[in-house]
Amino acid sequence: MEERPNNDTTISTDEINVLLGKLKFSEEESVQIMSTNDGKNVKGFESWAVGKIMATEHPNREAMYRVFKSLWYTKEEVDFVALKEGAVIVKFGCLEDRSRILKLMPWLFDKCLFSMVPFVKGKNIASYEFGLSPFWLRVYNIPIELMDRQLVVAVGNAIGELVAIDWKDRNGAWTEFMRLKVKIDISKPLRRIVKLVSRYGGETIEVIKYERLPDFCYMCGLIGHTFKNCKDNREGAGINDSNAQYGSWMRAPFVNPNQERNMRRNGVEIVKTTITANEDKEESQTNSRDESGQSAQKGNEKEVKKARYRHHLWKKEVISLYMTAWDGLSIRGSA
C-alpha cells in the first residue's frame, strides 16, 4: 500500500534539488517559460527586507504586522509575507522607507526582537543571517577626562561593530555616560562591562546598559528567551539577586518623549558611514594639514555636521511616535 504523510511537510531547497536530479522530464515539462521582468522595478524586490522574530516563543504575527504598519508611518504601503522557519519578507513600497526603518532598529514586539536585513536577489532565505542587531548602549563609570572620540570608537568596536555615536547626554555633554549604537552578535551572551586601562596603568570597570532591550535570560545572558525556558536551567535550580549574573540592571532607564528630545540635541554621528566613505579622504586631509594648517580639518568637520543634520531630519520625524508607542506595544499586541 502506498504510504501517505499524515501532515503536510515543508521541503528545503536542497531536498528539492536532490529530487529534481532523480526525475526525467517529459516533453511538455521541458518547455521553457521566458521571464519578461527586467529587474528594474524599484518598487519590487530592491526595496524589500527579510525579518525574523529572534525568540523561542513567537508572538502573534498578524498583531505584529498591524502594530508595525501603524508605528512605521511609511510613505507607501508595506506588506508582510510569512515564510518557513519564522522568516518574513517585508515588502516596503520604496527604498527610502526601507532605509529609514532599518536605521531605526532595533524593533521590538511583545518584548521580542524583530531582526531585519536587506533582501538580496537570488539569495536562499535559509542563508540569511539575523544574528547581528544594532542597539543603543550607555557606558557608565568612564572618567570624564578620558571621554573622547578615540575612546568611544575603541569601546564600541570592542563590544561589537560601532555604528553611531551620540555626542551629548542629558546635560549637554558626556558627563554621566557615553551613548553609542553598536551592532552586536545576539547569539552570544550580552556584554556587561568594559575594562579600561589608562596610560598610567590604572584600571576602571565600565558598566554597559542597553536601551530597548528585548527579553533575555538572567542566567545565560542570551536574547530570545527567559530564565524559565533556558536550557541551562537545571531542574530545581533557582536564581536570585545573589547568584544572577545578568539582570534588569542592564536595561537603560526609560525616558518619556519630552525627556528624549532634551537628551538628543543633534549630536549623532553615523560612524559606520562616515568612516567607510571618508577613510581615504581623512588620510589625505592629515597630510594637507601639515601644509595648510586647519583648512582640511574644517572641511572634515563640515562633512560631519552635514551627516549629523541629515540623521536628525529623519530621526526627529519618528522618534516621538516611537517612544510614545513603546509602552503600548505589549497591550496592542495581545489585542
Rank of each mutant, 00 (worst) to 15 (best):
Q245F: 04
Q245D: 07
Y246D: 04
Y246P: 06
Y246Q: 05
G247P: 01
G247V: 02
M250E: 03
A252T: 02
A252W: 03
N256R: 05
P257S: 04
Q259T: 05
E260H: 10
R261D: 07
R264E: 09
R265W: 02
N266Y: 11
G267C: 06
V268Q: 03
E269V: 14
E269P: 01
V271K: 01
V271P: 00
K272D: 11
K272G: 00
T273C: 02
I275H: 00
T276K: 13
T276Q: 11
T276W: 03
E279V: 01
D280Y: 09
D280Q: 12
K281S: 01
K281G: 00
E282P: 00
E282V: 14
E283P: 00
S284D: 11
S284Q: 13
Q285K: 05
Q285D: 13
D290S: 06
S292Q: 11
G293P: 09
Q297G: 14
Q297D: 10
K298G: 01
G299I: 06
N300P: 00
N300A: 14
N300M: 15
K302Y: 09
K305T: 06
A307C: 05
A307W: 02
R308H: 01
Y309E: 14
H311K: 09
L313F: 05
L313K: 13
K315M: 14
V318H: 09
I319E: 15
S320D: 12
S320T: 11
L321E: 10
Y322D: 15
T324H: 10
D327R: 15
L329G: 06
I331S: 06
G333C: 04
G333N: 04
S334L: 10
